[in-house]
């Protein structure tokens, strides 16, 4: 009974996850915001070695922390040329847009 209760109501269990728990991307869509997953995709696509986050990202603690921990070992660096912005954020004039996704965009400054 207790096992069933924990399993059903307290665990956040997803059968889809159990089907392939050792898959490299398993569970990321349940555990992470879409913005952060997209940052990872852009980092891989553009071969970014380090990155920085815009003001809006930094002010949103949830997105900020998830972006840092999920994308490790790629590190956040204050003086990085690559800055991720939220989709609706405006990019600084001194920066050039190099990638635009559904939820975020990457600029080189």
């Amino acid at each position: 009974m207790q096992i069933f209760y924990i399993f059903q109501f307290r665990s956040g269990f997803k059968y889809e996850v159990l089907k392939n728990p050792f898959g490299r991307d398993t569970g990321i869509n349940y555990a992470l915001p879409l913005e952060v997953v997209e940052i990872r995709d852009v980092i891989i696509k553009k071969k970014v070695n380090n990155f920085n986050l815009s003001e809006d990202f930094i002010n949103n603690k949830y997105l900020y922390q998830r972006a840092i921990e999920f994308n490790y070992p790629i590190r956040i660096k204050k003086d990085s040329k690559f800055i991720f912005y939220l989709k609706n954020e405006s990019i600084s004039n001194s920066c050039q847009l190099i990638e635009s996704g559904n939820y975020i965009k990457l600029a080189k400054c």
Partner: peptide, 30 residues
């Protein structure tokens, strides 16, 4: 059963992600 539940549960809570598993990830990569 607990192992199976664990393998079917995404890690989404704050302490687990931001502290414990992030530390594990850092030790793994570094």
């Amino acid at each position: 059963l607990i192992i199976l539940i664990s393998l079917g549960t995404p890690t989404y809570e704050w302490d687990a992600r931001s502290i414990w598993l992030f530390h594990g990830k850092r030790i793994f990569y570094d």
